[in-house]
Simulated assay, not measured.
Amino acid sequence: METKSLEVCLTPALLPLYKVEEYIVVIIDIFRATSSICYGIENGAEAIIPVSQVEECAAYREKGLGYLLAAERNGEVVAGFDFGNSPFAYTTDKVAGKTVVLTTTNGTHALHLSRSARRVVIGSFLNLTALCNWLKTQQDNVLLVCAGWKNNFNLEDTLFAGAVIEQLKNEGYKLDDPAIAANDLFQLGKADIRQYLKKTSHGERLKKLGIEKDIAFCEQIDLTTAIPVLKGEKLVKLSV
């Protein structure tokens, strides 16, 4: 049997180098989109519809079906929208039974570019172990796609990719160089992930916006068990 691959795409700008249709793709945007998506689906959101552009999100206003509209750019809520991508906007009382339409600076961009994958799922520290346990049952190649920051590399997404690899590297996968590098990075940071991630430029960006509590929330491990999966245009809870 051919060895499965476990690979890391360090930024969406590198996605054209991969045949994403040959992989299960895990989208990673730790600060904050994929953390908020995991939390929202865990808290009973019926679906989250990721769109690339603010205009696409706004267009759902005309559909009249009670969508919650969430738009973030450069770490801030876009004026005129219900909320952005703070996990605190995705609590049970706000999203249970609702459909959220979401656009973010990085995460939804990476997701849009990965739509032709065999399956697209969402990863964060919040659902780390549940995600890894599910991946261990799959027979396909896995590509961990780091959303980065505006098509550039970032530490937090790569560190999370390394955390996934730590749980999967003895499961018979062939690792590529970015996967090895991500896991080496995780070895540096795993003793105190919160302290290590204080180095990140996006963490600094969010601190300047006064939302340190969002950062701390997104660094929690195994707060949730739901795995959001893309079905058609919607992210819904994976049935496992």
Rank of each mutant, 00 (worst) to 15 (best):
K207H: 13
L188K: 08
D176C: 14
A181V: 09
W149S: 14
N170L: 00
N170C: 00
A182H: 04
Y173L: 01
K174Y: 04
F153M: 10
D177G: 05
V142F: 04
Y196K: 02
C146E: 10
F153R: 09
Y173C: 03
L175K: 13
H202L: 01
I180H: 12
N183T: 04
D140P: 04
K199R: 13
V164H: 06
L175Y: 03
K198Q: 15
P178W: 09
K169G: 03
L175Q: 13
A181F: 05
Q187K: 10
C146Q: 09
R194M: 03
K198V: 02
T158V: 09
G172M: 01
N152S: 15
L143Q: 08
L175M: 04
L206G: 08
K207M: 06
G189Q: 07
A161W: 00
I165P: 09
G172P: 07
I165N: 12
K150D: 14
L168S: 06
G203A: 11
V145F: 08
D184A: 14
L143H: 12
K199W: 01
P178Q: 12
V164S: 10
N183I: 00
I180Q: 14
E166W: 01
N151P: 03
G203Y: 13
L143I: 11
K169E: 15
W149P: 05
L197T: 10
N152K: 15
F153E: 09
K174F: 03
F160Y: 15
Q195H: 11
G162M: 00
I165V: 11
R194C: 03
G148R: 08
L197D: 02
G172F: 02
T158R: 03
E204W: 06
D157V: 09
F160E: 14
V164C: 13
A161I: 02
D177K: 13
G162D: 06
R205G: 06
N152A: 15
T158N: 12
Q187Y: 00
G172E: 11
T200E: 12
N154E: 13
D176A: 11
A182S: 14
N183K: 05
L206E: 04
D184C: 07
G189W: 05
R205N: 13
D140L: 08
D192R: 06
L155A: 06
Q167T: 08
D140F: 11
N154K: 05
T200D: 15
N183H: 14
N154V: 04
D140K: 09
S201T: 12
K150E: 15
D176S: 14
C146K: 08
L175I: 02
K207L: 06
Y173T: 07
H202K: 04
A147V: 08
K150G: 04
Q187R: 06
G172T: 08
G189T: 04
K198F: 01
K190C: 07
N141Q: 11
K198G: 09
D176F: 02
L155P: 03
K199Y: 03
E166A: 11
K207D: 14
L197I: 02
L143T: 10
L159V: 15
G148S: 12
E171W: 00
N141I: 04
I193W: 11
R194A: 13
I193D: 02
N151K: 11
L175W: 01
K150I: 13
G148D: 12
L175C: 10
A161P: 09
T200S: 15
N152L: 11
L188T: 07
G203I: 01
